[in-house]
Design a protein around this nucleic acid. Structure first.
Lengths: 261, 261
DNA sequence: CAATGTTTTTGATCCTCGTCAACGACAAGC
DNA sequence: GCTTGTCGTTGACGAGGATCAAAAACATTG
């Protein structure tokens, strides 16, 4: 089932979206301009929206956007504020969360390199985006980006494919939140994080966790204490090992069994 | 906040999408052909994907699709099966649910007239769609529909807007599932259903509930018993009245306070 | 109408997870 | 070094909702 979700990024009803194979040397058109974009050197260009663009289009995109660094713990944008920009995360990790008036919080997702922010093209942000680690984002004005979509149908299709994928993930998360026990939630979370890192750094049993236990709890509908208890229990049972800033998965099959659809 | 979500259907970064104002008499091109589509007579054409199309395009759409009726309790498509079609619901209500191997179920949504099924353009269905009432759907082959998207950018934009909206709703539902009490969940559900009916039949305190208590429980991450208890409690407290096949909302402000973001 | 199955309601009991409290580990700053 | 703050862990306890059981309400069928 998860494999189906995964496939959505590659092939959809919108047709196959292959990584862009460039025919002209990139970056040839411009001198070194610091705040601007340098898409050719981008490590994750094959995993983000950009891969739907040919060199010319990439140039156009570079022109309307700029890259910006954010320190850890800084806020990229806030729930409710006017959404003037859309973003493409190129490095670091973000926490996307919604706050209830009484302080309860729901983390709706964690963004990783290649993720696009602002798929919900609403006038105001429906959640807050905070940097968990130092992060780098390409930002584009909503209107500029929207104009580009008008004559770059491949970009729109690529975006649609990403939105579809996000929707499928959101529905998976509904199952986790609504119908799984604390232990299963943690297992699903760890397996899911592992899979996401695999896309970027290749498969590994070492899973970095840049977020706090509180963040994990708010993502899974649990309290910090329950998250901590479950993780220490899994460690006691030799299913995982807790290491600084992450975990090492010892018994992946067991975790996958717990998390399985 | 909910109002922002609502707005997404009207105005997005993709530009304003106004209901189609037709300039030519519709249906003039064809004789009465029973199984085919008759989009002009469609009651909810202004609320579905179709509203992104001009008369010519609508004709093209009619040609690749066909309308089909489904009796109550029948299955439109099943989780895991190959997804050969995409659908547009024109009448009735559907339950969209995911089943875990051990029988636990999560209802990921209820579809109402105007809703599009298959936004997650994956090769296989990620959930099952069952008719709660007799239903009518326009169905289009995935490939045919995909081909249309290639030269109907407005259709693609419309679809993208709908996907964005769905994503925002899914994230709202995450908050409900993860961070709300049983009472708040029921309140959020009733207020949400009321809002959805308002789009079709206009605002009313009478909210039809075509789904069972079990369905509601599986949607909110509760058991039947809890749903029943909470609803009878709300009835006892004069917040709602339980009527055959639905509820009447007596204290909407109280419900909205319970459900508020 | 009786017979059967489904849905809803209600009660009694149980248990998972939340709440409250405290402590230890660790990093940042003075 | 000490202080302060954040984060993670652990324990004791309780509550919200699940589970189990059964009856009532309701629809469907012969």
């Amino acid at each position: 089932m998860e494999s189906l979700v995964e496939k959505a990024l590659v092939e959809t009803v919108f047709g196959r979206i292959e990584a862009n194979t460039r025919l002209v040397p990139c970056g040839a058109h411009k001198a070194a301009q610091s705040p601007g974009l340098d898409c050719c050197d981008c490590e994750i260009k094959d995993q983000s929206v950009c891969c739907a663009l040919d060199p010319d289009e990439l140039d156009a995109l570079e022109r309307i956007g700029r890259s910006q660094g954010y320190p850890a713990k800084s806020t990229i944008f806030e729930q409710g504020r006017e959404a003037g920009f859309v973003y493409n995360l190129t490095a670091g990790a973000l926490r996307l969360s919604k706050l209830l008036p009484d302080g309860r919080r729901q983390v709706v997702g964690f963004a990783m390199p290649g993720d696009f922010l602002g798929l919900d093209f609403e006038p105001n942000h429906s959640y807050t985006a905070d940097a968990l680690t130092p992060a780098k984002l390409c930002q584009f004005s909503r209107v500029g980006f929207s104009d580009m979509l008008d004559d770059k149908p491949r970009l729109l299709r690529r975006l649609m494919a990403m939105a579809s994928h996000e929707l499928a993930l959101a529905q998976e998360q509904m199952v986790v939140l609504g119908r799984r026990t604390a232990e299963e939630k943690i297992a699903a979370f760890l397996v899911g994080m592992r899979k996401r890192y695999a896309r970027i750094h290749g498969p590994s049993v070492h899973v970095p966790l840049p977020m706090t236990r509180l963040d994990i709890g708010d993502y899974l509908g649990l309290t910090v204490e329950t998250v901590s208890r479950m993780m220490t229990r899994m460690a006691r049972e030799k299913t995982i090992v807790i290491v600084p800033d992450g975990v090492r998965l010892l018994d992946v099959p067991r975790l996958e069994r717990l998390a399985e659809v």
